[in-house]
Amino acid sequence: MKTLVALGLVTFAFASQAADSACMTAAKEKKLAGAAQKSFVTKCEADAKAKCEIAADEKKLAGAAKTSNVKKCVQESAPAS
């Protein structure tokens, strides 16, 4: 249960940074708004985070370096169309 709460908070933290992300830019280009925009951005960032986590693991990053790298990578990632 604590893990689910923590995961929810992390997801919320990522969603709150969506305004600066490539995913939000893509959503605006697609002229999405409201729930459709939120859903698109959430999925886009989750997909980007998964790819960035794999890339960080391949670079053998850990701790704060990995967290920072993944965060930057997610914000800069081009969305999967």
Results as ranks from 00 to 15, higher is better:
M1R: 09
K2H: 10
T3G: 10
T3V: 14
T3W: 08
T3M: 13
L4P: 05
V5L: 12
V5A: 10
A6S: 15
A6Q: 14
L7P: 05
L7R: 13
V10D: 00
V10E: 07
V10L: 05
F14T: 01
F14H: 01
F14V: 00
A15Y: 02
A15I: 03
S16E: 04
S16F: 05
Q17K: 03
Q17I: 03
Q17Y: 02
Q17A: 06
A19H: 10
A19Y: 06
S21H: 04
S21Y: 00
S21Q: 00
A22V: 06
T25Y: 07
A26S: 13
A26G: 12
K28D: 15
E29V: 14
E29W: 14
K30P: 10
K30E: 11
K30H: 13
L32Y: 14
L32R: 08
G34Q: 11
G34R: 14
G34D: 10
A36I: 05
A36F: 07
A36Q: 13
Q37N: 10
F40C: 12
F40E: 10
F40N: 12
V41G: 02
V41N: 03
T42L: 14
K43M: 08
E45S: 06
A46D: 06
D47G: 15
D47R: 12
A48M: 08
A48K: 04
K49N: 05
K51I: 07
K51S: 12
K51T: 09
C52Q: 00
E53S: 05
I54C: 04
A56C: 02
D57C: 07
D57K: 09
E58C: 03
E58Q: 04
K60W: 11
K60M: 09
K60L: 09
A62W: 12
G63P: 03
G63L: 04
K66I: 07
T67A: 07
T67M: 02
K72G: 00
C73W: 00
Q75W: 00
Q75S: 00
E76T: 00
S77I: 06
S77H: 07
A80M: 11
A80Y: 10
